Deep mutational scan, measured.
Amino acid sequence: NKFNKEMRNAYWEILHLPNLNEEQKNAFIQSLYDDPSQSANLLAEAKKLNDAQA
Score class of each variant (00 low, 15 high):
Asn1Lys: 11
Asn1His: 09
Lys2Leu: 06
Phe3Pro: 15
Phe3Asp: 15
Asn4Gln: 09
Asn4Pro: 15
Lys5Pro: 10
Lys5Asn: 01
Glu6Asp: 10
Glu6Asn: 02
Glu6Pro: 01
Met7Phe: 14
Met7Asp: 01
Arg8Val: 11
Arg8Tyr: 15
Asn9Trp: 12
Ala10Asp: 01
Tyr11Gln: 05
Tyr11Glu: 05
Trp12Val: 03
Ile14Glu: 00
Ile14Gly: 01
Ile14Ala: 01
Leu15Asn: 07
Leu15Phe: 07
His16Leu: 03
His16Lys: 07
His16Asp: 03
His16Asn: 04
Leu17Asp: 02
Leu17Arg: 04
Leu17Trp: 02
Leu17Phe: 06
Pro18Ala: 05
Pro18Tyr: 09
Asn19Leu: 09
Asn19Phe: 12
Asn19Ala: 04
Leu20Ile: 12
Leu20Asp: 00
Asn21Asp: 09
Asn21Val: 15
Asn21Ala: 08
Glu22Met: 11
Glu23Asp: 07
Gln24Phe: 11
Lys25Ala: 11
Lys25Val: 12
Asn26Glu: 08
Ala27Gln: 14
Ile29Val: 03
Ile29Gln: 04
Ile29Ser: 04
Gln30Pro: 01
Gln30Ser: 08
Gln30His: 14
Ser31Asn: 07
Ser31Tyr: 15
Ser31Glu: 14
Leu32Tyr: 00
Leu32Thr: 01
Leu32Met: 07
Asp34Phe: 10
Asp35Glu: 09
Asp35Ala: 08
Pro36Met: 05
Pro36Lys: 04
Pro36Gly: 11
Pro36Asp: 01
Pro36Ala: 08
Ser37Glu: 04
Ser37Leu: 10
Gln38Tyr: 09
Gln38Ser: 10
Ser39Tyr: 12
Ala40Leu: 10
Ala40Gly: 07
Asn41Thr: 07
Asn41Lys: 07
Leu42Glu: 05
Leu43Ala: 07
Ala44Gln: 12
Ala44Lys: 12
Ala44Met: 13
Glu45Trp: 13
Glu45Pro: 01
Glu45Ser: 12
Ala46His: 00
Lys47Trp: 06
Lys47Leu: 06
Lys48Gln: 06
Lys48Pro: 01
Leu49Glu: 08
Asn50Tyr: 01
Asn50Asp: 13
Asn50Ser: 07
Asn50Thr: 03
Asp51Ile: 08
Asp51His: 11
Gln53Val: 07
Gln53Tyr: 05
Ala54Leu: 08
Ala54Asn: 14
Ala54Met: 12
Ala54Gln: 14
Ala54Gly: 09
